[in-house]
Nucleic acid binder design. Sequence first.
DNA 1: AATTCGCCCTGTCGGC
DNA 2: TGCCGACAGGGCGAAT
Length: 297
Amino acid sequence: MPELPEVETIRRGLQAKVLGRTLVKADVRLKKQVRGLTAARFEVEVAGRRIEALDRRAKFLLLHLSGSKTLMVHLGMSGQLSYWDHVKTDTKDFMVSSLTGLQRTPGQHPVDKHTHVLLVLDQGDRIQYRDPRQFGYMSLVDTAAVDRLPSIKRLGMEPLDAGFTPLAFAGALAGRRGMLKPLLLNQSAVVGLGNIYADEACFAAGLHPCQTLERVTLAQIHKLFEAIKAVLDQALGEGGTTFRDYRRLDGTHGRNQQYLRAYGRGGKPCLRCSTPMKKILVAQRGTVFCPKCQRLK
DNA sequence: AATTCGCCCTGTCGGC
DNA sequence: TGCCGACAGGGCGAAT
């Protein structure tokens, strides 16, 4: 679910709410959601630490804590972080979304069977981690060791950083083989794109997701570069894309779903040329593209 | 070294 | 109505 714009939106929400505050207690309700150390150890180690900075690397959230520890959170496919305010009233209702059917209403929800970790703050407020599919996880590591972790070390360029330039991107793609979309998904050249924004970026760049990297021209790399930045900037500006599970920290939906031009539009007319969009399987992931605007040469 | 595949989970939807 | 398979926004480890 959460790709760069969603994770960054969560990070900003956390920054506004919890920066400088102390984690009084951690409560791990599903032990497997903590990795790298036991849940019991995690609970002991987290308690009493102050949140000193909030960072993001690719789709990882990094909560830098006092005592040189970092709480890493990856939201996987369906992970949600929400801020539970002790003075606010919980919402329990569900609503019907025209896009995806039944959904929880926006707002603050009580702990349910999918709420796996509670990070309790002063005043009894808390950060709630909820993850129906349980693909996400959190961990606690030495801050100095974050960059040496295999899961971090393998990551490519940050697309919204100043260092992400057409030249640098071309360098990261040099000598690569295989298809374009799998590369965008695997985080080794550029990070932050998942299934939604990979399709959006390919569409915006006019490139077929199965285009092989050996055959990508410099002009195409330039287009792809612009497309990646534009697609992520746009989504970030709208607070992310809510299709199913994603919610912002306060429980509200993102707004970017109304601006998607490829993802979820299989069979619908291309917004550029009206040709019906095709849906195929690429690297085991549903992939939507326009057969006319994104031709395979 | 780099790429592909199966798998980790639960929930939902469409077809029969 | 109920059952069943396909599919859902990610990443890892094993195999190739």
